[in-house]
């Protein structure tokens, strides 16, 4: 006979859930890396108001930010094969994990685009004016003067996005991917004790976010000191 909430189970479930951490980290890694690359491109398109791309970026960002990730995952999982079918490529039996990675990367790209845009815009105009007056080209200015400063400004928001991305991975379980939250849910279904599994994942998230906080603060202090 069990209890409604059994703390001993937390210790029992911990190893199994921890074994799934690599999957979560893999998803977060590709989501952030892929999202950053695409997000920077989107941010630049928005800032410079490039004719067609600006409108497309606005639409994409609006849609991806405005709809639940679940829908986006469904669109990628069911829609992408349909789209590629027209070109004769059949990826219906492609690994589910790839679909998950693509949808999370696209999702994070939209959010990161806004963070990057805000950070770039927060660098004072005097910086780029000074750079141009010294003779740096536009891309040099961007790379050497604006980007490092924007990077420093964006750090906290970027860190928050990484943590959020980690929590968003919860939905991977609907496609059967076993990351840490998925494993917690699977255990909850098997044993009826969902709460204890979630507590384990919360502890993992807390440790991960603390580690990231300190790493970011460390980098900020040592490398980006004013």
């Amino acid at each position: 006979m069990g209890k409604l909430f059994d703390p001993a189970l937390i210790i029992e479930y911990a190893p199994l859930i921890l074994s799934r951490l690599p999957v979560t980290l893999l998803i977060v890694f590709w989501a952030i890396v892929g999202g950053s690359v695409l997000g920077t491109l989107l941010a630049l398109a928005r800032i410079h108001k490039v004719p067609f791309l600006n409108g497309a970026a606005v639409f994409f960002i609006s849609f991806v930010r405005g709809t639940p990730i679940l829908i986006q995952m469904f669109i990628v999982y069911y829609g992408l094969p349909l789209l590629l079918m027209y070109f004769g490529i059949n990826i219906t039996r492609w690994a589910k994990l790839n679909f998950v990675l693509v949808s999370y990367a696209l999702n994070n790209a939209a959010f990161l685009a806004e963070i990057i845009r805000s950070a770039i815009l927060s660098v004072p105009a005097s910086q780029s004016e000074a750079a141009w007056s010294v003779g740096l080209s536009a891309s040099q200015t961007f790379r050497r003067i604006i980007l490092p400063q924007a990077f420093r400004t964006a750090f906290p928001a970027f860190g928050a996005r990484v943590i959020n991305a980690m929590q968003d991975t919860a939905l991977a379980f609907t496609l059967g991917i076993l990351d840490i939250l998925g494993q917690a849910q699977a255990i909850g279904i098997r044993t009826y004790h969902t709460l204890e599994g979630y507590v384990v994942t919360a502890i993992i998230f807390i440790v991960a976010s603390l580690l990231m906080e300190h790493t970011f603060a460390f980098i900020e202090r040592r490398r980006l000191a004013r």
């Binding site: 800032i47 410079h48 108001k49 609006s62 405005g66 770039i120 815009l121 105009a125 780029s128």
Partner: peptide, 25 residues
């Protein structure tokens, strides 16, 4: 969300009057 985004955009534009920005364009 699109409505919220719009409102946010208007507020940002209004408040940003007079604040010089970098980033080109």
């Amino acid at each position: 969300c699109a409505t919220v985004g719009r409102i946010g955009w208007f507020l940002e534009k209004r408040q940003a009057r007079g604040v010089a920005k970098a980033g080109g364009a």
